[in-house]
């Protein structure tokens, strides 16, 4: 090998510096994101925004604030579905809801809510189960774009057949079409679904606990974090949850590799639903 082992690839140096600049200048902290994914997204941004290299992108980012939202769009993009993984929502309905019923009031946190697919899924499920009125839903994300999209509750009509099928498979007790109006190729979800929802800018990387939760659903968000950052977020969830509160993760996420594993018990193992231990 001609390259010295100690030498970092130039592109890696540039990416590290770019993320440092993004943090120092704008306080968006992607420094501990899983690097393989962030690198892919940054390469895509660099190509499509037309920069010859990441140093040029960094210069633009530092001097032109208008570059920030354009870059963030690439870094915060999330692709989800309503009722993604129907068995997860079935398990929430059949196994978690009976416990939640015993509380007079509930707090649910959808951490990393993106465009709101998971939020609307849970609100609809809670309405079907008669729990919506006693629940406050906190929908948080670091992306203003995402929060605006979630608050608007509008999805393109071509996604609705999948959402409908997922809802049905998850044990839905109503028809999804009761909750939206279709027009001009878009499905606009009913604003009554948002009456108990608080939308808020919150970062799992830099922000703190803001309330005592009974259920936290954070699916396919932490897969973008490195292990250090995952541990921070899981610590935040552990602190935020009430005794015997529930934590739902994505289908291929696990507490197995985390030091926080001991604070949780498997509740529905195959659906990655955990319960905070009582002590």
């Amino acid at each position: 090998m001609t390259e010295s082992l100690a030498s970092e690839k130039i592109e890696d140096i540039e990416i590290r510096l770019l993320l440092e600049a993004l943090y120092t200048r704008y306080h968006y902290d992607f420094r501990n994101y899983a690097m393989a994914s962030i690198k892919r997204r940054l390469r895509q941004a660099r190509e499509q925004l037309g920069f010859p290299n990441f140093s040029a992108m960094q210069e633009s980012l530092l001097h032109e604030p208008s570059m920030l939202p354009r870059l963030l769009r690439y870094l915060t993009v999330q692709v989800s579905e309503m009722f993604r993984d129907p068995p997860y929502f079935q398990a929430i309905r059949d196994k978690v809801v009976p416990h939640l019923r015993t509380y007079p009031s509930l707090k649910v946190w959808i951490a990393g809510c993106s465009a709101g697919e998971e939020l609307y899924s849970l609100v609809i499920l809670f309405r079907e189960e008669g729990l919506e009125d006693r629940t406050i839903f906190y929908a948080t994300d670091i992306s203003q774009d995402a929060l605006h999209a979630a608050e608007a509750g509008i999805f393109t009509l071509d996604r609705i057949p999948l959402f409908t099928e997922n809802h049905r498979k998850s044990g839905g007790k109503s028809s999804l079409s009761e909750y939206y109006q279709a027009a001009y190729g878009r499905a606009s979800f009913d604003k009554s679904l948002r009456r108990n929802v608080v939308f808020s800018d919150h970062s799992l990387v830099t922000d703190a606990v803001f309330g005592e939760m009974h259920l936290i659903s954070c699916r396919n968000v932490m897969i973008y974090f490195d292990r250090l950052l995952q541990d921070r977020a899981l610590g935040l969830f552990e602190e935020s949850l009430a005794r015997k509160g529930f934590l739902g993760l994505g289908a291929k996420e696990s507490l197995r590799f985390s030091p926080h594993a001991a604070a949780f018990a498997d509740f529905v193992r195959e659906e990655k639903i955990y319960q905070k231990r009582a002590d």
Partner: peptide, 14 residues
């Protein structure tokens, strides 16, 4: 995806 620390990551990107 493979990370440089030789861990495996998943992503839901497009």
């Amino acid at each position: 995806l493979v990370e440089t620390d030789k861990g495996l990551s998943l992503s839901s990107d497009e």
